[in-house]
Amino acid sequence: MHVDEAISSRKSVRRFLPTPVSADVVRHILEVAARAPSGNNVQPWRVYVVGGECRDKLCGAIVEAASGDPDRHQPEYAYYPTSWFEPCLERRRRCGFGLYAALGIARDDKDARQRQMLRNYTFFDAPVGLIVTLDRRLNTGSFMDVGMFIQNILVAARAQGLHTCAQAAFAWFHKIAREHLPMAASEMLLCGIALGHEDPEAPENAFITERADLSEFASFHGCDVTARSDAA
């Protein structure tokens, strides 16, 4: 798969088939992803790959915690702003409304929304889950490094014919994860990643978020953007 196709066909899949993914394929994806750039080659990421009984126990414990007293659990970093603003607010709303519309869940159906939210913690039924951490002693720049590493995982997975869903939702339950994984005290849980084969019949997988036009986020200075070389 050409890298352009891998990037453009990447999407957040929220229902996976039970089809197994071999450890060799996961190992290959991570080895490729580790070529991500990082400042001074620090390579600040760490990954815990969970499957089988380990995955089931971790997911069960987090679902129980999220169902019982979720407010007791908070992430160790702020993913979203405390005060939303445009155009981010409208994009967020369209994302949420679009997903629930695809699932046929009404805006006032709190129970159905909660059930869908809890599916995050089963990795949306994917047979393989990844837990990504960062050493808290590092600084903000390392978040960028890990972000590039995570993107590499998502793209490398597509090159293997697989799909993913990056899930910050796991960051809220780092205390539960520590009970099941050998995470050092210095490690901060950043996100989970569901990895597997897409269920093509699932309506939620047909929902794909739009992207802003190039003119909305990029400006060109001192170069002629109308000219294209023969190689372009």
Rank of each mutant, 00 (worst) to 15 (best):
residue 65 A to Q: 05
residue 57 K to A: 10
residue 46 R to E: 08
residue 148 M to D: 01
residue 65 A to V: 07
residue 126 A to P: 00
residue 144 M to P: 00
residue 168 A to Y: 09
residue 136 R to M: 10
residue 156 A to H: 06
residue 160 Q to G: 01
residue 209 T to S: 12
residue 214 L to K: 11
residue 71 D to I: 08
residue 120 N to T: 07
residue 193 I to N: 00
residue 106 A to K: 15
residue 51 G to D: 11
residue 196 G to Q: 07
residue 143 F to K: 13
residue 96 G to E: 14
residue 213 D to Q: 12
residue 192 G to W: 00
residue 121 Y to H: 13
residue 90 E to D: 13
residue 61 A to N: 02
residue 220 F to I: 06
residue 20 P to K: 13
residue 164 T to P: 11
residue 106 A to F: 07
residue 37 P to N: 11
residue 78 A to G: 01
residue 39 G to A: 13
residue 208 I to E: 10
residue 145 D to Y: 05
residue 137 R to T: 09
residue 216 E to C: 08
residue 87 P to F: 15
residue 6 A to C: 10
residue 169 A to Y: 00
residue 162 L to R: 07
residue 207 F to K: 03
residue 13 V to R: 06
residue 125 D to L: 00
residue 167 Q to C: 10
residue 4 D to Q: 14
residue 118 L to M: 04
residue 167 Q to H: 10
residue 175 K to E: 14
residue 181 L to H: 02
residue 137 R to M: 08
residue 8 S to Q: 11
residue 129 G to E: 04
residue 85 F to N: 09
residue 121 Y to L: 07
residue 29 I to N: 02
residue 95 C to D: 03
residue 42 V to G: 01
residue 201 E to C: 09
residue 202 A to S: 15
residue 203 P to D: 02
residue 149 F to R: 01
residue 190 L to E: 06
residue 144 M to C: 14
residue 190 L to K: 06
residue 84 W to T: 03
residue 113 R to F: 05
residue 187 E to L: 01
residue 10 R to V: 06
residue 97 F to R: 13
residue 51 G to L: 03
residue 45 W to C: 02
residue 36 A to G: 07
residue 62 I to D: 01
residue 203 P to L: 01
residue 89 L to G: 03
residue 221 H to Q: 06
residue 6 A to D: 05
residue 39 G to F: 09
residue 199 D to H: 14
residue 104 G to P: 12
residue 132 V to G: 02
residue 4 D to T: 11
residue 48 Y to C: 00
residue 76 E to C: 05
residue 63 V to F: 05
residue 17 L to A: 12
residue 95 C to F: 07
residue 218 A to F: 04
residue 88 C to L: 12
residue 145 D to N: 14
residue 74 Q to C: 09
residue 77 Y to Q: 11
residue 86 E to Y: 08
residue 141 G to M: 14
residue 6 A to S: 15
residue 225 V to N: 03
residue 47 V to T: 13
residue 218 A to Y: 04
residue 36 A to Q: 06
residue 117 M to Y: 11
residue 167 Q to P: 03
residue 201 E to P: 04
residue 169 A to N: 05
residue 72 R to S: 13
residue 89 L to N: 08
residue 17 L to Q: 13
